[in-house]
Design a protein around this nucleic acid. Structure first.
Lengths: 267, 267
DNA sequence: CCATCTTTGTGCACGCGTTCACAAAGACAT
DNA sequence: ATGTCTTTGTGAACGCGTGCACAAAGATGG
């Protein structure tokens, strides 16, 4: 039972690399902005700058879609907007349900980015009876008892989970059983789904921790300016005594990659 | 001026690959859950299942941190929690400011995942004078005029941008100028930052579009079951007439990778 | 019609990340 | 102490993604 990621293993969908797919929305946004300013054409260089990527990468990305673009001129903005929209499946309407209307769920319900691109909030669902009927962002909240009915009636295939972590898996199971095949998960849990179901995770806490890592590294570098190609700069946080390994019988010295704490165990 | 990503180009921070760093929080979460259940040790297989990754990958990830773990037994949960926390820089306190207290900003302010891991909401900042002083999630909102002062006084190095896209770059610039070196951006814009500043992006709209792509592909596969190694299943959305390239003078037939629309231009 | 100039599209090489598969290490029983 | 059994740690192979650099394509001017 594959727990977690369920993307096509290597079956690159119709030849378009996953990394490229992930950038298409970025290009689309930049192109839309140009379109609104009535810019007729754009070069790969300009568009790449607007999207924050390398121009070679952008050209290669577009080459997977086909030979749009005119040498010596650039890309036709309107045409490209259409092609990318079509490729991403944004020319059709995607009904979406949001489950879990707490602070975050409510914020998502009111997020403008939904409606703008073919996504339509079909329903807001919450388990709290007190919420039922209450309008959030203009849409009345429905009770989770009706989850299956809602999904079937509206033909919903994309679900957003904004519940507490504790119930996320249950909600996920119900969504999948009801026919949802794509899930955007905001709950801090690893969701287990059957093959054929895509899960994407948005995890604030993880993002912050990654930033903290780099931040710490920057702070460490600063103090120990230059002292070798790989001197790693052990941060000062080692003031806290590390817990020692529990089942350790022998006294096999712990060895970090750069001379770590030598496992003096306090217990 | 590097617009966008600003991660270490190839200077893998102290030898820990970026991909590994991104997974450490995942492991940490699983380990914390085990710790709360007082589980003393865990094997790479078990932990990998809990974190939703391959066990070999997990072992390799840990090998970058050092030789923790005991062969034949597994990893000591408490010890590993400490080591990963330390590596991620979570043993110290990270004051964080959230700029833009709309729906999303308010939801973030109330998010429990902050406090749990060394992150402390130092201030909520909004440009709307009507918000100033109003408590959100127990913290009074401060006016953006005081942004620089707040950051300096509290030694804030991590900023969260939850403003509308239009002002995100300006806010970003002010944050950076005031000394912030890590930014978590929720605004749907590409931020331009100087070297040495890390930006991570959380973009709901992009995630949904990626899901839509895969969803469309699944739907297409379904209808055209099997008809060749590369027959790509053109979706039915082509009912909408595509805009033709604008500056096209000649009638150079557009050729998509799988026989696209032949650029009949209506104008 | 030809020359020049711009910009695309892509072949190629390189590096990172993933996965396999196995030897080494240690726990545990006898 | 010795053997067996479990699980780690990692060498090696592979595949994907990225970026360089350039040839081909077409626009534009004379």
């Amino acid at each position: 039972m594959a727990t977690g990621r369920t993307h096509r293993p290597a079956t690159r969908s119709r030849g378009i690399p996953e990394a490229t797919v992930a950038r298409l929305p970025l290009y689309l946004r930049a192109l839309t902005a140009l379109s609104e300013r009535s810019v007729p054409t754009v070069s790969s260089e300009e568009l790449a700058a607007a999207a924050g990527v390398n121009s070679a990468k952008l050209r290669k990305d577009f080459s997977y879609l086909g030979s749009y673009g005119t040498r010596g001129v650039g890309y036709d903005v309107e045409y490209l907007v259409y092609q990318i929209s079509r490729e991403l499946g944004l020319t059709q309407d995607w009904p979406v349900v949001i489950v879990g209307i707490g602070n975050l769920g409510a914020a998502l319900a009111g997020y403008g980015g939904f409606a703008s691109r073919g996504f339509r909030v079909a329903a807001l669902i919450d388990a709290d009876p007190a919420m039922t009927g209450k309008p959030v962002a203009g849409i009345p909240v429905q009770h989770s008892d009706d989850l299956e009915k809602i999904i079937n009636e509206d033909g919903v295939s994309i679900g957003v989970i904004a519940t507490p972590a504790g119930v996320a898996q249950q909600v996920c199971d119900r969504l999948v059983a009801a026919g949802v095949t794509s899930i955007l998960n905001f709950a801090p849990t690893v969701l287990s789904v059957p093959d054929g179901v895509d899960v994407r995770k948005v995890d604030l806490s993880i993002e912050l921790q990654i930033l903290a890592f780099h931040e710490q590294r920057k702070a460490g570098e600063e103090t120990s300016a230059e002292e070798g190609p790989d001197a790693g700069a052990e941060p000062e946080a080692a003031a806290v005594a590390p817990p020692a390994p529990r089942g350790a019988t022998g006294s096999t010295g712990r060895k970090g990659p750069d001379g770590d704490v030598p496992a003096v165990m306090p217990a």
